[in-house]
Amino acid sequence: MKETQFTATLTPVIEVATARSLAHPFIVGLSDGTLPLATFRYYLRQDHQYLEMFGRLHEVLAAQLNTALAQILTSLGEGEDLARQRLHAELKLSAVELAATKPAPTNYAYQTHMAYQNQAHGKAALAAGLLPCYWLYNEVGRRLAQKHSPNPLYQEFFDSYASDDFSSSTNQMRAIVDELAAPLDEAAHEQMRQAFVKSCYYEEQFWQMAYEQQRWR
């Protein structure tokens, strides 16, 4: 009997996070075209800061993996980078403005959470913590790409996450998490599960952060 892959056990978690995301006013506004461009611009600025840290954590993780897995990991998300660059250009978001953006409270907390996973629990928990950024966006993108937002910028956003390239990256990241989980015991699996659940929480909170254009108080 084939053993269930670890990430398959996380499917109920991602399904709940996807349902909540699809109902969030930020995503609804993207889908129906009513989200103010200023709100989307804020999101892109904060997301750029997040993705900078996300990339550095990929490098940290790759250094702990065997050569084959490291090579897969370092190539993930290249299509996402290109899509973001196009959106930045269309909204006239300069490199200077992006670099000057400081992480809002939720963004800061999310980044801190993932860095903690590596420091406290190691590479498997870090990989599990990174996975929702792929899996949740892929699920949201696939469900909304066919709805055709009236705003072409927002449609491009959804299309980039529904693409074959990003779906492939999601599946490859799941495979990395499954391979890291395979030799571990249930206690380590629980650490991975908690890292994944907390990242899903912060992914949902990221929508709210952008929707209210959160500031430090």
Rank of each mutant, 00 (worst) to 15 (best):
L82W: 06
E203F: 11
L184F: 00
A162H: 12
Y42P: 07
G79C: 06
Q71P: 01
M209T: 04
E203R: 02
G33C: 08
Q191S: 14
E139V: 02
T9W: 12
F6I: 04
A188H: 03
E179Q: 15
I14W: 00
F6V: 02
D178C: 01
M114K: 12
N151L: 03
A210C: 12
A124M: 09
Y201S: 10
E78P: 00
A210K: 03
Q208W: 11
E52C: 11
A62Q: 13
D164C: 04
C200F: 05
L98S: 10
A83F: 03
R193N: 06
E212P: 04
S169G: 12
H24E: 01
T4F: 10
E156I: 01
E90G: 05
N151V: 14
A99M: 08
L30S: 01
L93D: 08
S167R: 13
Y134G: 00
R56Q: 14
L126H: 13
Q191K: 15
L136G: 01
Y116D: 13
N66L: 07
T112E: 12
L57V: 04
L93Y: 07
G77N: 02
M173I: 03
L98N: 11
Y134D: 03
T101S: 14
A68K: 12
A181M: 02
E15M: 09
N171R: 15
F6W: 13
V28R: 14
A210P: 00
R86I: 10
Q49A: 11
E90P: 05
L22I: 02
